[in-house]
Design a protein around this nucleic acid. Structure first.
Lengths: 347, 347
DNA sequence: GTGAAAGCGCTAACAC
DNA sequence: GTGTTAGCGCTTTCAC
């Protein structure tokens, strides 16, 4: 319990010899306050260690000074991609703390039927000023519509395809995947296999298109049999690798649509005594934290996740209160991270 | 923007034909409401899709219905232990969502000088109902004191040592580390090395004590030269391993005080062509997500992190509003996760 | 059991 | 430039 009652706006006003409205103007950095008055008020604020009460402010202004980051809730045990979520959080946090906002996190299970309702309830109770919806949730129409219907400003991350009346922030999945493919081809690889991601994740689907682009651009033919379906899990990467590597004319490079699957490939290669990158090059996508720490370190595609959420949060914060529907789209380029798991084709 | 104004307590009261106080009683599950009245109100709530406004409630009651989880902010790039933080979050989130609370996350850098002030400011502005402070921040007196001084209920996670007038939730670091050491000894290992963790992290220090206990219990002698100092980072694990493994009578087992350092050991072993676990057993501690996914999968100690934060959140939520200072301590037992990186001693 | 009235601490609209 | 007056939507106290 607080021994001494916390200072309120009235205390500050009294000490500074002004009205509470003036104090409010100062704390909100509104114009039209004489510099000398502002200083007087500032001094009182400092002296009393005054901080505006967030609830009162939010109640009076309908601005809550917090935003929500919603992402697919992986079981941390099944899925090592913690770094992915942490990077999402990190960017949003950066923007929030720079603007005196708070971040609420809300992992939601894509599979759960009532995620849309759950989010509506959260919005109605807590009135966040905006929502950042990360992929793959950002391409579930039901969820997107539920949020939109409340009128809460929304920024979608990597929704897979843009929608005219929405705001989205994405990365150049297709282009960068083509680049990775060309890179592998430039190392002399002819049989480059691809493991696709989960179908519901559109952005991951774009990586497959990029792979095909890259083959074409490198003058390589596309073969269905060099493609295996995965579902973004390590296990599916292992399964796909087991199939691909059991053939007699096996691929010399495997490009997986995410890092977890690539890690699965590397595990299988190790268990089959196939040297990576000597006999097999492996590339992933996402640059999740394990990528650097498995052996050999994984060549992958690095998405600027934190930058993307930071930008998303800034968009929401800047827009806050003006109530206009957000629309637009931004693309932040990803980059190749060449590490140890890729090398010249054998022979 | 909301097309239709959201239902308020007045709307519900009017529709149900009762006073707002009665509605309030129903939403807060207070006693002394006739069953038939309660039902009438419930019906109105459902019909209007009414949700109490969290800010208004918090302003009036001084209860904000959210808690804050504070943890050391690792750079996600340097440090793969994302799973650790995710598990912390997961438990707290579970408790929150079961009780209609929200979780605010606040990563803070231990090194940052003004972390204490930063937390005070957050507390004063937002008035969370409680704070969960994770290790290693939980053993920085300045931070702990800053939070306590605001009167906000606090639960410390693994503070290293208990304090009479605080509430802490820990795991049995020392005992379980002794158990791991005995397990290694039981495999025939005689030269079991230990890599210590960062000094500031007291709970990690307890693991070193446990290692010594385990040696004694197994009838093995303790040798200073089998101990190397690490700082919890992968790089420090690599450095320690490089030294330990360059000797002619090298250890046959290395037990690292956390998984990151153990991962570093495995990388160095791989680069030196030392077979794990054939020639060298490696054990870690924490069961961070990479543990399972490096090759070979890491034998480690699993702390029930999510359970611990879940319990912490429950303690805070149960206590909420009653203002009594929390004190007490609970211990949740960790368990050995035997995987592939440990095996019988060579020869 | 239920209700009326008085705030919680702030911002908004408008007066001066 | 600055102050005054109403609320925001809820809980609390205390009356009935």
């Amino acid at each position: 319990m607080n021994a001494k009652r916390r200072a309120t706006i009235d205390d500050v006003a009294q000490l500074a010899g002004v009205s509470i409205k003036t104090v409010s103007r100062v704390t909100n950095r509104e114009p039209n306050v004489r510099e000398s008055t502002r200083e007087k008020v500032q001094a009182a604020i400092t002296k009393l260690n005054y901080r505006p009460n967030i609830s009162a402010r939010s109640l009076a202004s309908l601005r809550s000074h917090f935003i929500v980051l919603v992402y697919d809730d992986p079981s941390p045990y099944d899925n090592p991609s913690g770094g992915y979520i942490l990077r999402l959080q990190q960017g949003a946090l950066r923007a929030c703390s720079a603007n005196n906002y708070e971040l609420l996190i809300h992992p939601g299970r894509a599979r759960k039927r009532d995620l849309a309702l759950e989010l509506k309830s959260l919005i109605e109770r807590a009135r966040p000023e905006g929502i950042i919806l990360a992929a793959p949730l950002s391409n579930i129409p039901k969820v997107v519509d539920a949020i939109s219907s409340t009128g809460t400003p929304l920024v979608q991350l990597s929704p897979g395809k843009d929608s005219a009346n929405r705001y989205s922030i994405s990365t150049n999945d297709r282009e960068i995947s083509a680049e990775m493919t060309r890179y592998l081809a430039s190392l002399g690889h002819q049989r480059i296999a691809f493991i696709t991601g989960h179908r519901s994740h559109k952005a991951v689907g774009n990586r497959f298109l990029g792979y095909k682009d890259g083959l074409r651009q490198s003058g390589l033919k596309f073969f269905e049999r060099l493609v295996r379906d995965g579902d973004n899990s390590i296990a599916s990467g292992e399964a796909a690798a087991a199939e691909l590597l059991d053939r007699k004319s096996r691929p010399t490079a495997i490009f997986a649509a995410n890092d977890d699957m690539a890690a699965g490939v590397i595990r299988i290669a190790a268990s089959k005594d196939i040297d990576v990158p000597g006999q097999l090059s492996v590339a992933g996508c996402d640059d999740i934290s394990i990528a650097r720490h498995i052996f050999p370190a994984l060549t992958t595609i690095r998405q600027p996740l934190a930058t993307m959420t930071e930008r998303a949060a800034c968009v929401l914060i800047e827009d806050a209160g003006n109530g206009s529907a957000l629309h637009g789209s931004e693309v932040f380029p990803a980059s190749l991270q060449i590490r140890e798991s890729t090398g010249p084709a054998p022979d």
